[in-house]
Computed example of a mutant assay.
Amino acid sequence: MVVVVMEFRIDRRNGVPAFQQIVQQTKQALRLGVLVPGDRLPTAKVVAEVSAVNPNTTLKAYRELEREGLVEPRPGQGTFVRRTLARPSAGTDSPLYGELVAWMSRAAGAGLEQEDVAALVASAMEKQYATGTATAATTTGSTGE
């Protein structure tokens, strides 16, 4: 059994409920391979102490993740990752991640703020995935350098 040290960052100003932020951050960790099947999530008590959220908030998030088949509670043991969302080409050790980090560095060097970058990324994602599926034709070619 592996206990993953994962701290949830709860932003109370963004309007997204805390339980939903926990769900989103857990899914992100599952997509990036930070969490893998068999890993134990932090207890609701630990999350409450570290993130200053009510333990019931964490339990609600974990129930949502359980409904989606991503985690499973084991009475007396904790909540464990059941399946991953990671894809080999989406991990932090993939070439795509390296390209994205390099692009982010160029964006910051050009004076863009985090909100500017988020807006550009959101716009590009909407355009790329507008039909529900990505097309290889629009992802090949220039890397923007």
Results as ranks from 00 to 15, higher is better:
3 V>P: 02
3 V>W: 04
4 V>I: 07
5 V>R: 05
6 M>S: 06
7 E>S: 12
8 F>S: 06
8 F>C: 08
8 F>K: 04
10 I>W: 05
11 D>H: 06
12 R>M: 13
12 R>K: 15
13 R>V: 13
13 R>Q: 13
13 R>Y: 12
14 N>M: 11
17 P>H: 06
17 P>G: 02
20 Q>I: 15
21 Q>H: 07
22 I>T: 02
23 V>P: 00
23 V>T: 03
25 Q>G: 06
26 T>L: 04
29 A>Y: 01
29 A>K: 00
29 A>C: 04
31 R>I: 05
31 R>W: 04
31 R>G: 05
33 G>L: 03
34 V>P: 00
34 V>T: 08
34 V>Y: 05
35 L>H: 00
35 L>F: 00
40 R>V: 01
43 T>C: 04
45 K>A: 12
45 K>I: 09
45 K>F: 07
47 V>P: 00
48 A>V: 01
50 V>T: 09
50 V>H: 03
53 V>P: 01
54 N>P: 02
55 P>F: 01
56 N>E: 12
56 N>L: 10
57 T>D: 03
57 T>W: 06
57 T>C: 05
58 T>Q: 04
59 L>N: 14
59 L>T: 08
60 K>A: 12
62 Y>K: 00
63 R>E: 11
63 R>T: 06
63 R>H: 09
64 E>A: 15
65 L>T: 01
65 L>K: 02
66 E>C: 03
66 E>M: 08
66 E>P: 02
68 E>K: 09
68 E>M: 13
69 G>A: 06
71 V>S: 00
71 V>E: 00
71 V>T: 01
72 E>T: 12
72 E>N: 09
73 P>C: 07
74 R>E: 03
74 R>Q: 08
75 P>G: 14
75 P>Y: 15
76 G>M: 07
77 Q>M: 11
77 Q>V: 08
77 Q>N: 12
78 G>C: 02
79 T>G: 01
79 T>V: 12
80 F>G: 00
82 R>C: 02
83 R>N: 02
84 T>P: 01
85 L>W: 02
87 R>S: 09
90 A>T: 06
91 G>N: 02
91 G>A: 03
91 G>S: 09
92 T>G: 11
93 D>W: 03
94 S>A: 13
96 L>V: 10
97 Y>F: 15
98 G>T: 07
99 E>F: 14
99 E>K: 14
100 L>C: 10
102 A>Y: 02
102 A>V: 03
105 S>G: 14
107 A>N: 08
107 A>L: 14
108 A>H: 11
108 A>M: 14
109 G>I: 05
109 G>P: 03
109 G>H: 02
110 A>Y: 14
113 E>A: 14
114 Q>I: 09
115 E>N: 09
117 V>S: 04
117 V>Q: 10
117 V>L: 10
118 A>C: 08
118 A>N: 11
119 A>M: 08
119 A>R: 11
121 V>E: 06
124 A>V: 12
124 A>E: 11
126 E>W: 07
126 E>V: 11
126 E>I: 10
126 E>D: 13
128 Q>I: 13
131 T>K: 05
134 A>W: 07
134 A>P: 07
135 T>R: 15
137 A>V: 15
137 A>I: 11
139 T>R: 12
140 T>V: 15
140 T>E: 14
141 G>C: 10
142 S>C: 09
142 S>P: 06
142 S>L: 09
144 G>S: 04
144 G>V: 06
144 G>R: 02
144 G>H: 05
144 G>Y: 05
144 G>K: 07
145 E>N: 12
145 E>T: 13
